[in-house]
Amino acid sequence: MGRLVKHHLFWPLCVLAALLLFNLCYSPDFFTITMHDGHLYGSLIDILNFGSPLILVAIGMTLVVATKGIDLSVGSIVAISGAVACLSISKGPDQNSLALILISVLLAVGLSLILGLWNGLLVSVAGIQPIIATLILMVAGRGIAQLVTGGQIITVTSAKYAYIGSGSLATLPFSIFVVILVLLIALLTRRTALGLFIESVGCNPTASLMAGVRAKWVILAVYIFCGLCAGIAGLLLSSNVSSADGNNAGLWYELDAILAVVIGGTSLNGGRYYLTGTVIGALIIQTLTTTIYMIGVPPEITLVVKAFVVLAVCLIQSDAFRAAFAARWKTRHYPAEKEITRHVS
């Protein structure tokens, strides 16, 4: 039991379970999943489908945070990647041709790799603080996305492109498989020495350099990977609604992603990371969003409700808070009880 409670996934899982339980009590058919034209249909599937871009971005963010960095530009990369893909498809002669879709997707992914490289170069080679280095692209990236879309919303009518974000493979949304693939790639860092390198760079870059780890290369790699994740997330998001919106796509995604990373147990101080925790963190955020829509919280107070839940989650996860709480509980006094005892004796 003690070991179970100590496991880093214990509290995030508890919170997720509590949220799902609340939904079960509130609307009993929350868990019902039905078959609909050959694919599964239900709230849980929605959570997975709409949550997948956030999970992707958060996975990339986890590795960056593990090196004691932060990437604020992911939201903008999401917007740019979607915009570039949609623009290239909308310019094509036949929007449904597979070659065009592949070229567009590769173009978007390639561009997001370059954007990730840009961030990485600023941080590792130029030695700029990560928060400032990525802030540049966060602000400029929105502008680039608007430049690409010309301030308009680009709509595409390609069924093949829509498949990426809203199609289904083996009755499950295709986006889930994309997430699983990327997660597996990220988990490879755990199977190789790279994971250890990332953590050591996060603990102390100089010491790891002395020990023979090429800190600059490691940092460069995680930012590129983070850019890649954000780019794929942008493809999922834009293909889900078959349109690219330079203004609003991925707006504030960086904050949600950082939140997911932190809920998952990864410390912003770097040196440790938990990829599965991050996935659960992202799922918690998406479940919370869906729950708020389902129970009909008035839009004016939605953010307040969200803030309270997030606060509760963070407090539950804080060891110091739990210890203080437990200490109070153990040393609680009952003045009334004592008085009675005194009278009896």
Binding site: S27, F30, G42, S43, D46, F50, T290, Y293, M294, G296
Partner: peptide, 8 residues
């Protein structure tokens, strides 16, 4: 939001 409306 519409997805959630349809479920709820």
């Amino acid at each position: 939001v519409m997805q959630a409306f349809l479920k709820a």
